[in-house]
Write a protein that binds this DNA or RNA. Sequence first.
RNA 1: GGUCCUGUGGCCGAGUGGCUAGGCAGAGCUCUGCAAAAGCUCGUACAGCGGUUCGAAUCCGCUCGGGACCUCCA
Length: 511
Amino acid sequence: MNQPLKVYNSLTRQKELFEPLSPPYVGMYVCGPTVYNYVHLGNVRTFLTFDTLFRYLSHIGYKVRYVRNITDVGHLVGDGDDGEDKIGKMAKLEKLEPMEIVQRYTNDFHQVLEQLNFRTPSIEPTATGHLIEQIEAVKDLIGKGLAYESNGSVYFDINQYNANGNNYGKLSGRVLDELLTETRELEGTSEKRNPLDFAIWKNAAPEHLMQWESPWGRGFPGWHLECTCMSTKYLGKQFDIHGGGMDLKFPHHECEIAQGTGINGTDPVRYWMHSNMLTVNGQKMSKSLGNSFLPRELFAGNHPLLEQAYSPMTARFFMLQSQYRSTLDFSNDALKGSQKAYKRLMNGLKIIKSMAYIPADVADSGEEVGLKVSTPCVQIDEKKVADIKKSVQNFYEAMNDDLNTAVAIAQLFNLLKYINMLFLNQLVPASLGEEGFGLLKEKFVTFTEELLGLLEERSENDAVLSGMLDLYREYKATQQYDKVDQIRSYFKAQNLVIRDMKHRIDWAYEE
RNA sequence: GGUCCUGUGGCCGAGUGGCUAGGCAGAGCUCUGCAAAAGCUCGUACAGCGGUUCGAAUCCGCUCGGGACCUCCA
């Protein structure tokens, strides 16, 4: 609210100033996973985009209701009637109840997101929990002449929808005639009036595991319908933001627009946002191409594509280093670079959090705070203070510019420079003034932890480490260098390193 | 085939009609028991060819390369 946020709206194909329907409230819906398998790293990128948006909107004063669904109805693998539903297929394969499959992969999804420090959405509704709403929606569309029954299935009537003055294809930029000529369905074999009509209710074969009673016989809801019903129920007939991966633009989101418009008489979404794909060697990461890997495999480093393990926060940082609308290419070299950069950032975070402002007169004498500084007189370095203010402002401008986290992170590194200088007494807090120092500390911590969701990853106990450091100092003072080296090895074994400087000895994350 | 996106230095990745992105890697200096870290300095860019312009890597055209969607996919 207190920041002019601009977002790229896929519907209008341009950046627009974000103005919610009824500030300070914001309604945001994001298509969640179909829980028939483990989420892979590519899936995670989309959710990270909207986690970042959720955090930023909240930070700038909006009250956000963030709805992210769980698709727990199996949808068809293929387009034809003989297609198997994905959850049902897994259930048969593993000899489990479909709901066991759903539970297992929902748990996995939640666990992965928690490891990556995602905030939980306000509501996480399931498709099976909204069957009544979906059946009502189908009835409603039939009543309005926008859908028709055929052999126990119900299809959305695109020709009628367009005849009513709508434009099916406006989100994805598709032209109906072109779609028609490209369709692979054979004439005469379909239950549909128009090959482009999509199912909103699907007749189920007896062996189909997940099926429910309906006015059109036993069946299950069409894939696109759940999002329309759940977003309408929790966010209203029209709401602010709808997000998802690029690959959902067509047909899924196009269908949502058609259904929402058909049922509620209004365009359901004001800002459509789509995040781009994670690629591997330039190709989209996907299960069918076999180039995907699981977050778990990334964290453990046990996948042929991975040269080593990368921590959850390294992965988060890596993905935030690019803007969400660009494709991001995965590579070990890039991940290694991110790992080092992330650790540098965390060392800065650790330093600044432990540091308090010291007025000039105290800094002069130095003794009582354990600093041996002999700064004769400290005056405020206006140039540095101005630079800090500029970086803070640039951070906000970057975030306001369609969530440009890449540029935002660059500002963090500008600030990090001053933190490191403070740490080494190349700069004393007093030279930034209380205001300048306070701004540096507050913003660096807020940006890193709250907005980007980057946290320190550490298991070792602080007290143990500080005890070890005391020993280190003692051995060093008595020049017992072999023991000094032993302590260094102890830290090294935990991916930590001792920083032994003129004025200070401390530990840090090994970079 | 149709629709659309994209091509930045060793690697990843921003951005813009003229002003240092940033990170990783590399070189030098300072500091240091040895290291490490940090700070400072430095190098190598905008696929190719035309055009518009006082000026383009940034706009336009063409060529070549890569990709996405059109089928479930974040």
